[in-house]
Design a protein around this nucleic acid. Structure first.
Lengths: 206, 206, 206, 206
DNA sequence: GATGAATGAGTTTTCATTCAT
DNA sequence: TATGAATGAAAACTCATTCAT
């Protein structure tokens, strides 16, 4: 009796659930990768299915449309992002919090590349994929609030502007890094960044 | 009264050239607008032609493919961008040069919005429209070199990093502004930006 | 009762293969018919799809372009043609072989009409359908070699020229027959042909 | 006063006629060349106009449609062909006539290539260009009659079949020659052809 | 007589989605 | 749950023909 005779045995509900989650994950991951590099409209469902190693029919079993995949991905980005923000907020010292935020952002640059590319693309071209940017806007606002909160607690002046300022800095560096990863002097730029937000430097902003 | 006022004479080459330039301009402008907001793949040639007020066929009389339109636009952005950089370099005082650059960038934010959106979306998704990012990379490098040159002449430390830093800042602010124009506190952020690069502040970086 | 009689099971690979072969066959057959009579460029994919009873989309599921259909057909003609030549070569007596070849050619004139029309039209207009005539040339060479072999074994003089001569004769008669099938005196012309290559007549060529 | 001031002088009717004939000739010649190699539907009016060095508009000044060009070309082929047949008939000796016909046909193979290719293409695919093959059929019949006449006068048996036979031979050789001009042993094949229709050989057919 | 910009209908090709199995 | 054959609508692109000049 070989392992293949198993396939005629009914699966347990747990097995089914596991399979479903794995497949769904694979579709989303591969769709993300493709959407991020080729664009949403530049990627076909056939591309996604092939990349995920499933049939086109099955992909529609998990998502009711191509839009639905995009929505699910963006949603997930938002949720994960919010979780990270919340996690950060558990740190007491605001300066440490700030640096942790920076470190986290740039420590997972390669892991988050596709998410970020897709997110920014949708931000820049809101008509693509009918993405109501509401949810993305709200997410961005959360980010800025978190930064404002940090700066308030540090006690500097121009809290709102400084929050926008460092936010821009982080996204700008990210953008430039992704544009030319091989040649970007990430390490030394980050060193400069940290030095500009060292405790002493922050004192000057009070 | 010229010879060409005679009935049944073909248009002069000059007349044709004028017509061609006007129509080409219109197609490119409208394509830019659409590509920038709906994305390259999200925009059809029918969309472009309609928006430009010409037939689909005529659009292909001017550009041999949709890709060709995108390439022509990007090319033009690069050329105009290079011209601006060169223009800036005529200013003697490097600090003034730096602030002129900032002012120029943010003074024409609304005029340049579509260009920037398209440029960044191609940067993020180079596979779209077969954009060989070579030319875009070269353009970006020029920008960084111009900034490094300014900082060198000002005489600060960490020239390369500071160039990357302020470059990121400018693009980051631009990105965030376009994301939520109504609510972005552009004026006060720019004030902060200028203050951080005032003559006195720059002294500290030497 | 097999496992696949269970509801909601995907088709077996065998079933799919069978479907694919049938549909592919139908597309090729109908494309051949249309290409042969209306010309390659005179036939649209819509024509082909309609004639084959499938949607345009499906036709592209089977062939990646209109050119691809033409290439596939020509390829098949070459393969079948080569097989026939090989089959002939199993006959021992060269004179019998020669007459079998003639009989075969003219015995299936009506069955092979479309093939021949298409083949010749590609021969005459090699730029159509990007037909690299290489493969067709090779096929023709095979034919001439087979004829030369026959004549060599019969032992006549001017083997090469005689091979070209009878080859031209066969294609010329075919061409004229297809030009005006109703009125062509095929039977009596073939009788003349056979008489000119009878054993006695061949003796004269030694 | 330069030659260019002449262009504002009204042309004489003779000049106009000459220009018209030249231009018309050029359009037809270039259309023939293109139709013959790329096929009628594979050739665009833009191709024709460009090749002939005139504007598209002007081409329509001379021919009312693309079909019209094709018809005009075919017509001309028929007329010229008939003239040649008539010319041949002025030769008294039928055997000499036969060989003159052969020599003429193969003596101008390269000059007549495009005509022949186009003619045969239309014969094989009568639906292309709405070519009613009536006129082409009539032309072919003329040819066969001329041959039959020759053979009758020579006094051989099976006049009709022999006419078809040699007609097929001539077209078959022509076809094979055009297929692979570089490698076709035209000279020795023609030598064989002449020898098979020498006065002595013809005696055997009586 | 001559030009080439412009059109619109048609052609090739793609692709999200459905459906039989 | 899973497949991939099949569809139809839309997209990219072509081209015969017209027309203002």
């Amino acid at each position: 009796m070989t392992i293949y005779s198993v396939k005629n045995m009914p699966r347990t509900p747990e097995q089914n659930k596991e399979i479903r989650e794995k497949t769904r994950r694979s579709i989303m991951d591969n769709a993300l990768k493709l959407f991020a590099t080729k664009g949403f409209h530049g990627t076909s469902m056939a591309d996604v299915a092939k990349e995920a190693g499933v049939s086109k029919g099955l992909a529609y079993n998990y998502f009711k449309s191509k839009d639905d995949i995009a929505h699910s991905i963006i949603n997930e980005i938002m949720v994960v992002g919010d979780q990270i923000v919340m996690m950060m907020q558990k740190i007491d010292d605001p300066v440490e919090q700030l640096h942790t935020m920076i470190n986290y952002t740039f420590g997972f640059l390669d892991e988050n590349e596709q998410y970020w590319r897709l997110y920014i693309s949708f931000v820049l071209q809101p008509e693509v994929a009918n993405m109501s940017s509401e949810i993305m806007l709200k997410f961005a606002k959360n980010m800025f609030h978190a930064l404002e909160d940090i700066f308030t607690r540090i006690g500097i002046k121009n809290v709102k502007e400084e929050a926008r300022y460092i936010g821009a800095l982080i996204d700008g560096i990210t953008l430039h890094y992704y544009f030319d990863k091989e040649n970007y002097p990430l390490k030394s730029v980050l060193k400069l960044l940290h030095s500009k937000y060292s405790r002493e430097a922050l004192e000057m902003l009070k």
